[in-house]
């Protein structure tokens, strides 16, 4: 028996999901962060974030089509994490690192939190 492993398949699927998001095709939830709105697919959000996993596996909340995040969440930090979910690329700017890390803690994206910690540590001159 042999098996063909398509090594690009996971990234090709993610690329297509991101194209669907940008064209607002089958997006099924609006995330409200302060006054900003972000359209996304629940399945992608819950696959990447412990918080969204908890929300969308809750039978009382899974059919919500809009979710408001804590007003303390920074919309720019959220935008960067949403972009990461759909691209695998995390843009870490020094000016936004604390906002990104706090948002990642809130969204329960533990590996991203660890990465932010390492980035802060490596940027610290002392």
């Amino acid at each position: 028996d042999s098996c063909i492993q398509f090594t690009r398949h996971a990234s090709d699927v993610l690329l297509n999901l991101n194209r669907l998001r940008s064209r607002d095709i089958l997006t099924d939830v609006t995330i409200l962060v302060n006054r900003q709105q972000f359209r996304a697919h629940k399945t992608v959000l819950m696959a990447c974030s412990g918080l969204f996993y908890s929300i969308f596996t809750d039978s009382h909340k899974c059919n919500l089509n809009a979710i408001s995040l804590d007003p303390k969440v920074d919309p720019e930090g959220f935008a960067i994490l949403l972009e990461f979910m759909y691209t695998s690329r995390l843009t870490l700017k020094e000016s936004l690192i604390m906002a990104i890390m706090n948002t990642a803690i809130y969204l329960q994206m533990d590996h991203v939190v660890d990465t932010c910690h390492r980035f802060i540590k490596s940027s610290d001159p002392s």
Binding site: C3, I4, H9, L15, R19, S22
Partner: peptide, 21 residues
Amino acid sequence: YEGSNTIKEMGRSIHEIPRQD
């Protein structure tokens, strides 16, 4: 499955959804 007969295919695996214009 990662058996010894696994062949790696490096090319695109699916059609590409067009970008939004």
